[in-house]
Design a protein around this nucleic acid. Structure first.
Lengths: 345, 345
DNA sequence: TTGTAGGCGTTATCAC
DNA sequence: GTGATAACGCCTACAA
């Protein structure tokens, strides 16, 4: 029950602690420890079930092989958990563990948790956000390595950030529609098309819309309109789509800014007797599981949560400070083409 | 950048390290340190931005205020992330942080991670599973405090376990149907009704079915049949429901063993021109968000992920070893009654 | 090739 | 009331 120490192993092997240390650190060769002694030490360690006390080692070496992962509410949000997954994998490859905590959006708590992690001598801190958003970088963050994950600093600051490439995602959505032959009756569900008609804090909304507009106008096509929603839930999508369906020009394609909104759009189309993919095409964002549960299956542009998580750790741990700090890394959003986009009637 | 140590604070305050330690540990009163000295120390600490080195403290005290959270793939699974959320909250209330890792089902990796966490002197380990299942308790686990979360030991063993009360959930599902007046044409979608027709490793399937049968037979009602599925995805639910809809007695109520299966069942009913809640009632399990997106909204028995996570930490940390080790704690599954259950036609 | 000794930053036991 | 001094368990320069 009580753990065996290195001193104990050394005693059992009849050598000094130094020798035991070298052997068990794999530096026996380097230190030209005799094979005999090496074997004795190994055996003693094995027989006694020796395990190094990592806390002690940390104190000595000043490195804990631990990364702090502080999120607003990531573990909580369905697929944002994949952020953690990616981070976990990348961390393990580098022999690190993750110390995690949630702030639930409380800035004081956030500050406290960051300090608490620094006190524990973590090698770096990831500040992660559930939805891509602008965030004010907590002051204490700058006193050590750190990365913003799924968040952008609202003021210029020297912390790197890792976010999905929302603008390119928007471009892809538009391209998909153009490729299918859509040239008019294209509406956005989730934001208005006039300036300012955007949910506050919504990086996704702003950048996706910009990308969409860019590609469409590049092809001489313009957006027929849009609907700003209170929230991006199915009910909101349903109501907005119903309204849009009464507008002129007649909607031929809906770009829904997330899959939940798309669920509502599907329901509205069904109510109107319209068939998705034939009468009206739908492109969506996020690629939650529900996208492939819908009939017809929904074409959606995925948030690369796993890759985002990985990237954050890579930037933190491998980040040979060659790239200027403050760099924003944009991770591609893969498009999952399914059945909801068709040639316009 | 370089951290201030206690020694430094003491020097600045012109006192010994001992005195500084007592003051900052809040034991100044107890040790009858003079108010003057106390103030000097406090000020020095504040001015220099002193923060204790927790690693060092850990080494000295042997306690890290950290819990290891090892899961097969929890962070990964949509709502199982709520397990972490609950654990996080409960841990923070007790001033602990969580060190997390995933095994992805690899027993060797699991063993390694558990050892790695013990090496880091964690105060206890939670072994969590994505879906409730039976699990073989890794050997090394017994060498310190630990709890099984959302998992049951396959052989009797002294580790406590925290799981949803699946049997009672099953009873609730049955009661809901009885209360609405259902007495026949009740089918289960997800398992067969004969012995052995259960997905392997499926605690949920076994216990839910047992609860359902218990209440029904108590009311003199019996299950009309069931369908064992390969997987519990919408497609499986769809196909099974379609088959069931051709059976006699005519299905009047479907108990779907999760919401994804229910999604498929809804689609099958729609294809057959049957209306949910009027022609056929549906009760479901899990209460994922999709349950309230469906039309009509789905009555579902929720998995109390958050509470499960909390409970695990409570058992671990508060667990005054009064309850016999090996206790199984069953957390109630709340039923969310919505619109999918109606009086049989 | 192996051993001695010092120190990482705390906390805690004793003297004074 | 306050201050030396010794651990905690490990790593490593230096000595032998």
């Amino acid at each position: 029950m009580t753990r065996v120490t290195l001193a104990e192993v050394a005693r059992q092997a009849g050598v000094s602690q130094t020798t035991a240390s070298f052997v068990l650190a794999g530096r026996g060769e380097e230190m030209r420890i005799s094979a005999q002694v090496e074997a004795r030490v190994r055996q003693a360690a094995h027989e006694s079930g020796y395990r190094p006390n990592v806390v002690s080692r940390n104190l000595r070496t000043g490195t804990t092989h631990t990364i702090g992962f502080v999120s607003d509410t990531v573990a909580t949000t369905p697929f944002a958990g994949h952020l953690i997954w990616g981070a976990l994998d990348a961390a393990r490859e580098r022999e690190h563990l993750l110390l995690i905590a949630e702030t639930e959006g409380d800035p004081d708590l956030e500050k406290e948790l960051i300090e608490s992690m620094r006190d524990r001598q973590v090698g770096g801190i990831v500040i992660a956000s559930m939805y891509t958003r602008w965030t004010t970088v907590p002051k204490g963050l700058l006193e050590g390595k750190s990365v913003l994950l799924n968040a952008l600093p609202s003021k210029p600051c020297p912390v790197a950030a890792v976010v999905p490439d929302e603008a390119e995602g928007g471009r892809d959505a538009a391209r998909t529609l153009l490729r299918a032959g859509h040239t008019d009756g294209i509406y956005v569900v989730g934001v208005g098309t006039k300036p300012g008609q955007v949910p506050k804090g919504g990086v996704a909304a702003v950048e996706r819309l910009a990308g969409i507009k860019e590609v469409l106008s590049g092809a001489g096509v313009s957006l027929a309109g849009g609907a700003l929603l209170k929230d991006w839930q199915p009910r909101d999508g349903y109501e907005a789509s119903l309204r849009l369906l009464g507008r002129k020009p007649e909607p031929k394609a809906l770009i829904c800014l997330n899959d939940r909104v798309s669920v509502g759009a599907y329901q509205a189309l069904e109510d109107k007797g319209l068939k998705v993919g034939r009468d009206v095409s739908v492109v969506s964002f996020d690629d939650e599981p529900v996208a492939s549960w819908l009939r017809p299956q929904l074409t959606s542009i995925a948030i690369p949560h796993y890759e985002l998580g990985r990237k954050a750790i890579e930037v933190l741990l491998d980040g040979g400070h060659s790239p200027p700090e403050g760099t924003v890394y944009r991770v591609p959003m893969p498009i999952r083409e399914r059945e909801s986009v068709g040639t316009p009637p």
